[in-house]
């Protein structure tokens, strides 16, 4: 099953033949994606399959070696950093909070220090506290430092930071990895509600099948450097592809060979 093609105006993120290698390690071998405006796409794939590299290529954090990427109608090769980043919010796998800054300055970082639209400190703090509330954190967390927070709280602060400027595209890199199942459920529900509330296009990377079912409209599987399968989330249990089926069931035996499997 391949990605849908559609009216070009309708596509928020398009990738065609994107390649990227690190030395001899060819991580992306020609990735094609077409993600519609307002869609919540989840990309699944094994650890080390290049999911993080892929989303970093999509916004130019890692330059692709080849292929074409178009974001919101602008070819990435012609876009300035700020044109891209104004549209983008990203939740990083480890949170990537700045440990020398209190929580609220993390959330309001772009409003205080970014090169686009800045606001004064009082206004930035008010926005930060509002965004913290949106992710379920009270104003008492505003003046804590990242090191004082639990993993789940760090993820939430990262989430608040990613949505602080109302981006039209939000990337989530393994939002539930390292969290207990309940906290993972909380984060999944937050992501789902934020995405539907803001109407933003969302791209989530995960190998947590609960996340996939909570968050996704459509699912793509990255395997051996290409998008092997794309389909609606309802098709996951009957994907018609043995690789996807094995991944979804978490079966040790199947076409996907894993090192160390008997």
């Amino acid at each position: 099953m391949t990605d849908q093609t559609g009216d070009e105006d309708d596509i928020m993120i398009r990738a065609e033949g994107v390649t990227r290698a690190f030395g001899k390690n060819r991580v992306l071998k020609g990735v094609d994606l077409a993600i519609r405006r307002g869609e919540s796409r989840v990309v699944i794939g094994g650890s080390g399959s290049g999911k993080s590299v892929l989303i970093k290529c999509l916004i130019g954090l890692i330059p692709a070696d080849g292929g074409r990427i178009v974001i919101d109608g602008i070819p990435l090769s012609h876009a300035t950093r700020s044109e891209v980043m104004r549209r983008v919010g990203m939740l990083f796998q480890g949170g990537a909070l700045f440990d020398s800054l209190p929580v609220w300055e993390n959330v309001a970082f772009r409003l205080l220090r970014g090169e686009d639209e800045r606001v004064d400190r009082a206004r930035a703090r008010a926005i930060a506290i509002e965004k913290l509330a949106r992710v379920g954190l009270g104003p008492e967390t505003a003046d804590l430092y990242p090191a004082e927070l639990s993993g789940g709280m760090q993820k939430r602060v990262g989430l608040a930071r990613a949505i602080a400027h109302a981006p039209s595209i939000i990337f989530f890199d393994e939002p539930t990895t390292g969290l207990d199942p309940i906290m993972a459920g909380v984060i999944n529900r937050l992501i789902r509600s934020i995405v539907s509330e803001t109407g933003a296009t969302a791209v989530t990377i995960t190998h947590d099948m609960v996340s996939v079912r909570t968050i996704a409209d459509r699912v793509s599987m990255l395997h051996e450097g290409v998008i092997r399968w794309t389909g609606p989330v309802e098709r996951l249990d009957d994907p018609g592809d043995p690789y996807v089926a094995q991944f979804v069931r978490g079966a040790p035996d199947g076409p996907i060979r894993v090192e160390g499997a008997a």
Partner: peptide, 17 residues
């Protein structure tokens, strides 16, 4: 440390050089 914990990437996504 900022590099390996993706804080440098985060800076860029937050429109900061």
């Amino acid at each position: 440390t900022m590099k390996v914990t993706e804080q440098i990437d985060a800076l860029v996504t937050l429109s900061t050089s």
